[in-house]
């Protein structure tokens, strides 16, 4: 009940701003979770298209921000707890759980999220965290692959990402990842759909501006998977990309597609140095 009240108050506060439209740019709030201060703003690195770089958290209203600052209030943790159970649960023909091979998630998965997506030598492809999870399931557990951007897979990636919370985004873009990076960059600047809008049109050229009722951030992915009020569940970065491209009246790419993995690498690079906030809270 308390949670609802906070959310509603947030909505009311936002409506109050409609007439004045004073929002422009990020706010000055500091993100602290469990006593740890997160990097939500930093100067652009060499070759960075953004300067400063901001976390999307800085563009949300106070009530939404507050939910992310308290793990007991953060609605994403219901799903994280479910995934913690799945981690220990034997599934598939091999009689194994994730824990059978990896032990405690807190130990074995620490830091993993920071370098995602990453080039997988054996597969000869760039893999998102989801690919690694599904590979373990199908090849090592003899279980079915989980659906991309589905509740179960998003819960598992949230659990894994949580073990890197507070660590800086640090994707590797050279070597065999370089061509994926270039492809992702090309997608980022392509004006898709009947509205002919690129990611950069909204998230680079108009950071901080209102587009109808939405306060535009830099479209960073350091908070993913993220819990959204809009659909009251966890959302993957690819799910968000899909929604943004759909909103340009375009034919989207599929979550898990090579195009979205390439885009994920490029967007991760744009946010390098930001603290991982997963699982974050957004509207």
């Amino acid at each position: 009940m308390l949670k609802k009240a906070i959310v509603l108050a947030g909505a009311a506060a936002l409506t109050g701003l409609a007439s004045t439209a004073v929002l422009a740019g990020p706010d000055d709030d500091e993100l602290v979770i469990d006593g740890e201060t997160f990097v939500t703003e930093l100067p652009g690195f060499e070759g960075s298209p953004l300067d400063p770089i901001y976390s999307g958290w800085r563009f949300r209203d106070d009530a939404t921000q507050a939910l992310e600052m308290d793990d007991f209030e953060n609605p994403a943790f219901v799903f994280v707890e479910q995934a913690a159970e799945s981690w220990e649960t034997v599934e598939g023909t091999e009689g194994k759980s994730c824990a059978s091979c990896h032990g405690a998630v807190e130990e074995s998965m620490k830091g993993v999220r920071a370098s995602m997506p990453s080039y997988n030598e054996a597969a000869g492809e760039l893999w998102s965290l989801e690919n690694y999870v599904n590979f373990c399931r199908t090849e090592r557990m003899g279980a079915d692959a989980l659906k991309w951007d589905g509740d179960e897979l998003n819960a598992m990636t949230a659990l894994i990402a949580l073990q890197s919370r507070g660590m800086p985004m640090a994707p590797v873009i050279d070597g065999p990842a370089a061509e994926w990076f270039e492809r992702g960059k090309e997608i980022y600047y392509t004006r898709y759909g009947q509205l002919e809008l690129s990611c950069a049109n909204c998230h680079e050229d108009h950071t901080g501006d209102m587009i109808r009722a939405d306060h535009l951030s830099q479209g960073q992915i350091n908070g993913f998977p993220t819990y959204r009020f809009k659909n009251t569940k966890l959302n993957s970065a690819h799910g968000r990309f899909k929604g943004c491209i759909r909103d340009t009246r375009a034919e989207t790419f599929a979550p898990g597609s090579p195009e979205f993995r390439a885009l994920e690498l490029y967007v991760a690079w744009r946010g390098q140095g930001l603290s991982i906030e997963s699982p974050s809270v957004r509207n």
Binding site: Y192, G193, Q194, E196, R246, R249, A250, E251, T252
Partner: peptide, 11 residues
């Protein structure tokens, strides 16, 4: 247009 969609369906 590049990848024009069927309104806002994503198709």
């Amino acid at each position: 247009f590049i990848r024009p969609g069927d309104a806002y369906t994503g198709n």
